[in-house]
Design a protein around this nucleic acid. Structure first.
Length: 231
DNA sequence: CGCCTTTGACCTGCGC
DNA sequence: GCGCAGGTCAAAGGCG
């Protein structure tokens, strides 16, 4: 089990949820995907919520409502006490990410619902999926989360090599591109600062590591900087 | 010397 | 088809 999952479970937030450490997916609440980044991430990381772009279009409002409607009182209390209210992860809505979500949807379809409710808005539309499948290039699944930190690089236990930096339109902060230095491991990550709030660092992981972290952090060790995760 | 970052050039996908 | 923006490459230089 990942250290993140342990952290979540230790807080009693998702104690009833079945955990797949291999995929890192939770299924809570039923129509959202709550996931941990791939196993081996830094113990200070907690959790993140991801969702189909179709639902993300209404985020954070719809997600907040959905989350709160199905959250236990304990979870609601946690949201209020830790975040001063339901603040939620911002999500990528780029078309490129649809490809990743196509894969996520395929995975999630394994636990197909039978309640007959209209959940179409939770999935990429058939038209979009057709367009996705018509594309040759298939992207790895992505995990995106936001932290409040003075430093851009979070210690996630893996070694990374920077291979590019790009100034993104409408932002004054450049986006950095990193690749895992492990042989044959093709995991990449992007790091950028939020235009609206430069204190926030957005980290996007693409792909899954095929190896263990290069060094194991002591789970009891305090983080060297403040990570403030939305979920 | 090896590994890393920097940075301009190039490639690719997408919208119009 | 074209232009733009994001993503990647690779040479050059820095650092331990």
């Amino acid at each position: 089990m990942s250290s993140i999952s342990q952290a979540m479970l230790s807080q009693g937030l998702f104690e009833d949820q079945e955990l797949s450490t291999q995929m890192g997916f939770f299924s809570f609440p039923p129509n959202l995907t709550i996931s941990t980044p791939p196993f081996g991430y830094h113990q200070s990381l907690k959790t993140l919520i991801t969702m189909p772009p179709s639902l993300a279009a209404d985020a954070p409002t719809s997600l907040t409502e959905t989350l709160l409607s199905s959250a236990t009182q304990k979870q609601k209390d946690h949201i209020t006490s830790h975040f001063g209210g339901p603040q939620l992860l911002s999500l990528q809505r780029s078309s490129a990410n649809l490809r990743a979500w196509g894969e996520v949807n395929e995975y999630c379809r394994g636990s197909k619902r039978s309640d007959g409710d209209d959940h179409d808005h939770l999935r990429v539309s058939a038209k979009k999926m057709k367009k996705i499948k018509s594309r040759r290039k298939v992207r790895e699944p992505r995990f995106c989360f936001k932290t409040m930190s003075d430093v851009d690089i979070l210690d996630d236990g893996y070694k990374w090599r920077k291979y590019g930096q790009k100034v993104v339109k409408n932002t004054e902060h450049p986006r950095s591109y990193y690749r895992c230095t492990q042989d044959n491991c093709r995991v990449k990550k992007r790091v950028e600062r939020l235009a609206e709030d430069p204190r926030m660092v957005i980290t996007t992981y693409e792909g899954r590591h095929i190896h263990s972290p290069s060094h194991d952090e002591d789970d009891t060790q305090a983080p060297s900087h403040l990570n403030y995760f939305f979920w």
